[in-house]
Amino acid sequence: MTETPLVEFNALKVRFKGERTVHAINGLSLSMQQGETLGLLGESGSGKSVTLKTLLRLLPPRRSEIEGSVRVNGTDITTLSGRALSAYRGREVSMVFQEPALALDPVYTIGDQIAETVMRHKGIGRHAAMDVALDMLTRVRIPSPERRLKNYPHEMSGGMRQRAMIALALACRPKLLLADEPTTALDATVQIQILLLLRELQREFGMGVIFVTHDIGVAVEVSDRIAVMYAGNIVETGTTRDVIKNPRHPYTRGLLAANLHGAVKGERLDAIPGSPPALEELPSACSFAPRCAFARPQCLSGLPPVTDLGDGHSVACVLEHPAFDERSREALPV
């Protein structure tokens, strides 16, 4: 008997309509176990935030179309609506945003904002909810939490606000926490504190975490597994160790070569020549081909097949497919 996966994306497609169509997610499939931390890596515009927002159904309903399924603990959440949707948001899955200064309501106190969620989901009174809020602020180690309960967001520092945001997100003990570049807006020293805090709380609460970052160093630090996104799809996924030690996709290799060997921590993933494709049309071939040093005719004749390399390591590239001619593969520079 295997456990129900925490998250299961199955051929997810997300399209934005408007003046021009954007195919933001193109057939993404991925599954994630309970309590696992997944690092989501990829260039700007590769669809990381859209993936997280799809999980919380935060995309503008009139301007976006979702196809495929996303199961969280076995329930397809793409069809949730009304009461079921709001009961799901914040309780099963919650989110820590990149900019706590913008993600907290400026005219409500921190205590009120946390208590509001708790009251919503636990159906308890304001007084009890405030106790939960106080407990959460203590857990995220905000100094003098009683006083901070009554603070407004603008009365706190950036690091403290992000701690408060984490307290808010975890107040209802979600099974899955989405963290969209939660430390990018913070000073370097504060970044590390927040990362350590997140890791500690993840262990304490046993929740799954999807951690979006541009920083490979951070991804290696926090994640059990890594998924690399490119142009709205996952091109490679595996345990952190496998992906870092034995990257198979040319894009992943490019990223690692650019970031690990140079050891420039915190730098954006932009060292691969060329730029990501416009997403105006559904891809019919490997999206990375125009920038790929190993591209060959097969790459353009169809979507690259996904190959399972064992131990959950999989990659979407024709070079890795067993049917691919071994001799030309050996000739590859690694």
């Binding site: 935060l58 709001s86 009961a87 948001r89 309501d105 400026p106 409500y108 509001e116 969620t117 919503r120």
Partner: peptide, 28 residues
């Protein structure tokens, strides 16, 4: 169009509660 409105939905508030937050922000 501010981020916090999305964050309010993300934490599970119903539409009416979000409107209350918006009104509170607009009131002054």
């Amino acid at each position: 169009s501010m981020d916090f409105v999305q964050a309010l939905y993300a934490k599970g508030l119903r539409h009416g509660d979000v409107l209350r937050h918006v009104v509170r922000n607009a009131a002054p």
